[in-house]
């Protein structure tokens, strides 16, 4: 993928909250209107800044969970008990409130259908394998929704690990290219996978190394570390594996 040099200055923008709705018991979806938003690539993130009346500020990063084609910016916020920022975002923020935000940030953990065309380069049509743990599915929702809206020809698969069926996010976007595994119990009539993503699951449920997929993995640190190491062991080229970690902030932001 060509390195897009993003050298323009990132300025703070004012976002208005359109909706703050619980997506699951622990995750809220923020729908934001961001006048002046310059557009993003699926996989990029934003920095949010909160300012208290005494001038104290806190910043956190969130992946954009919506396609560039969606006029609203969607963020998925997992509530961390005792955290300073996420409980504020999930519990306090109401429609009409404003937030400061800047982005898009990051140019490596991105994929868009433009990569497909790529001026006829042979690597243009490499399949895309996404592997998500929990709320780490957020950047992939941007990629999948973008892929669907643009009708791209690239073969895309998502392997998605969630705690329970109630914890599965954004089922409307996941589609038939998604394989879900439930790690903490499944309903009696569940016909999908159960248990953690391990070597056997990765071998059976992801594109084989011989198809030279671009691989993206996102989730908690230990999840991403395990997935990446196992994929390399299975024969995937390390340079084809791109990682993003949630809970890099220690699960308490």
């Amino acid at each position: 993928m060509a390195r897009a040099a993003v050298q323009r200055r990132l300025t703070w923008l004012r976002a208005t909250v359109l909706e703050n709705r619980p997506e699951t018991a622990r995750v809220h979806r923020l729908l934001l209107d961001v006048p002046g938003w310059p557009g993003h690539l699926p996989g990029q993130h934003v920095d949010l800044r909160l300012t208290a009346e005494d001038g104290y500020t806190a910043q956190r990063s969130y992946s954009v969970a919506s396609a560039p084609e969606d006029p609203r910016l969607h963020l998925l916020v997992e509530r961390a008990e005792g955290g300073e920022v996420s409980p504020y975002l999930t519990d306090e923020l109401r429609p009409g409130d404003q937030l400061e935000l800047r982005g898009p940030i990051g140019g490596y953990f991105v994929w868009s259908s433009a990569v497909d065309r790529g001026g006829g380069r042979p690597e243009g049509r490499r399949p895309v394998q996404l592997v998500a743990g929990g709320v780490g599915v957020a950047p992939f929702l941007a990629m999948l929704d973008h892929h669907r809206r643009t009708g791209g020809a690239t073969a895309v698969r998502l392997l998605y690990s969630a705690r329970t069926l109630q914890d599965v996010l954004a089922r409307d976007v996941l589609g038939s290219w998604t394989t879900i595994t439930l790690t903490r119990g499944a309903p009696a009539d569940w016909r999908g996978l159960t248990g953690r993503i391990d070597r056997r699951v990765l071998e059976a449920q992801t594109f084989a190394p011989t198809t030279r997929p671009r691989v993206f993995a996102c989730g908690p640190t230990s999840f991403v570390e395990t997935v990446a190491t196992t994929l390399v062991d299975l024969g995937h080229d390390p340079s084809s594996i791109r990682l993003e970690r949630f809970g890099g902030s220690g699960d308490r932001s």
Binding site: F109, A228, R245, G248, G250
Partner: peptide, 20 residues
């Protein structure tokens, strides 16, 4: 420093690719 918070005992890991 401005905009930072104390990670306490945690030592988060961040890297763009697999561990060599």
């Amino acid at each position: 420093p401005p905009g930072q918070y104390d990670a306490g005992d945690l030592f988060p890991v961040l890297s763009a690719g697999p561990t060599p």
